[in-house]
Amino acid sequence: MHQPQGLVCRLESWGATEGEFRERYDGTRRWSPFNYSVYIRKNRGEEVIGLAFGNKVTLHADGSVSEQAIRDAHHRNQILVEEFGLAEEVVNDLPEDQPLPPPPGSRSAQVEENELSPA
């Protein structure tokens, strides 16, 4: 939903053991793009709707894409209840979305760290 133009995906291994799966899964606890905001997708008739990284996205049957910025947490929660059918009690317990920081160890993160360090 966050890259409706498509993305490159690569399978790095086949037949991972339970230990390998757990290690990779645990590696996302510290940083994953999905740890900072609601990410949801629903097939609805001839289209797909979703929320990703602060936008509501609709993938239409004709291949076109509509995007709408989510104004705030109240707007996000309203969409989750009205369009995705989630219970208000669940939605109201969600934390507010946060801006996505750069991945740890990336050049962007290093630049950010240098900017925040006292001179």
Rank of each mutant, 00 (worst) to 15 (best):
M1W: 11
Q3W: 15
Q3H: 08
Q3C: 09
G6E: 14
V8A: 14
V8W: 15
C9P: 00
L11I: 11
L11T: 07
L11D: 08
W14K: 10
W14T: 04
G15W: 11
E18F: 07
R24K: 08
R24H: 07
D26Q: 08
D26K: 09
S32H: 15
F34Q: 14
N35V: 08
Y36W: 10
V38H: 04
I40E: 05
K42C: 06
N43F: 15
E46M: 08
E47H: 08
E47W: 10
E47L: 08
V48M: 06
N55T: 07
K56I: 06
K56Q: 09
V57H: 01
T58I: 05
L59G: 02
A61T: 10
S66G: 03
Q68N: 06
I70P: 01
R71I: 11
H74T: 05
H75M: 04
N77M: 06
V81Q: 03
E83W: 00
F84N: 00
F84K: 01
F84R: 03
V90E: 14
N92G: 06
N92S: 13
N92K: 12
N92P: 00
P95L: 09
P101R: 03
S106L: 03
S106W: 10
R107D: 11
S108I: 13
E113H: 15
E115H: 11
P118W: 13
